[in-house]
């Protein structure tokens, strides 16, 4: 069988900020349809920078990020049509209800045909109770807002999904539900790039795990390769190993 084309490609992706800080140093990886790629790493490792490059929120210093073969910094709008995004701690519009927020972002994503029922179904799917659907978001807890954000990304029905710390703010039960949701999205053939601190969940769901440190992709293993390995130990090893190197 012919290998499918990667949906998300990082090709020698490099970002040096104006203040000289090298946030990403020639990082390359691919995410295929039906695959979940988990980026692990400490704060400031470059995970969010990578996601921002895919969204063209920043311009790459070198290399490029491609979505379905489209370089994001060359044709950002075209690339973004194929992307859905969940950010960490999104506040959304506090004076809008969940339905209103969903409606707005669905339309922005180019989907104008959804009905209220569709929205309700998605909200139920991400675990938001019926009674909350018509409430303004300013009364929501952090976790409820996060669920809303996830619902928005599902509604866009894009082939690639970028998740920036999606489980932050979710309680354990919700986090488990979220993993189930990711699995079902993978079934649908989505390419999913997720940055996370949560090693256990990453191991549970990820097809490929990449560990980042100081802007470098220091390790990348597939699910098969990780069988029998202690991911946590690996993580600490790679991090401290790098630290030793620096020292």
């Amino acid at each position: 069988m012919e290998t499918p084309r990667p949906m998300l490609e990082a090709d020698g992706l490099t970002k040096r900020y104006e203040d000289g800080n090298l946030a990403l140093d020639h990082v390359s990886f691919d995410v295929y349809p039906g695959q979940v790629y988990a980026m692990l790493g400490g704060n400031g490792a470059g995970k969010t920078t990578a996601i921002n490059l895919f969204l063209n929120f920043i311009e790459p210093t070198d290399g490029e990020a491609r979505v379905d073969g489209i370089a994001t910094h060359k044709e950002p709008l075209k690339a973004k049509e194929k992307l859905a995004y969940v950010s960490e701690n999104v506040m959304l519009y506090p004076n809008f209800t969940a339905l209103q927020n969903l409606d707005f972002f669905a339309r922005l994503g180019g989907n104008t045909k959804y009905s209220k029922d569709d929205y309700r179904q998605v909200l139920l799917r991400v675990g938001l109770e019926e009674e909350a659907h018509n409430r303004r978001l300013k009364g929501y807890s952090k976790g409820m807002r996060q669920k809303c954000g996830i619902a928005i990304s599902i509604l866009k029905n894009a082939p690639a999904i970028l998740l920036d710390e999606p489980t932050s703010g979710l309680d354990p039960k919700a986090a488990v539900e979220f993993i189930r949701l990711l699995e079902s999205l993978r079934e649908e053939g989505k390419a999913i790039l997720m940055s996370t601190h949560d090693i256990f969940r990453a191991k549970e769901v990820a097809d490929v795990v990449g560990i980042m440190n100081e802007g470098n992709l220091v390790m990348q293993r597939s699910r098969e390769e990780l069988v029998g390995e202690d991911l946590e130990k690996l993580y600490v090893e790679y991090m401290t190993g790098y630290m030793d190197e620096v020292a």
Partner: peptide, 15 residues
């Protein structure tokens, strides 16, 4: 920007 909606909005194909 502060509420994160700017990022979310521009993750879509919005000129």
């Amino acid at each position: 920007r502060e509420s994160g909606t700017l990022k979310l909005t521009f993750s879509n194909a919005v000129p």
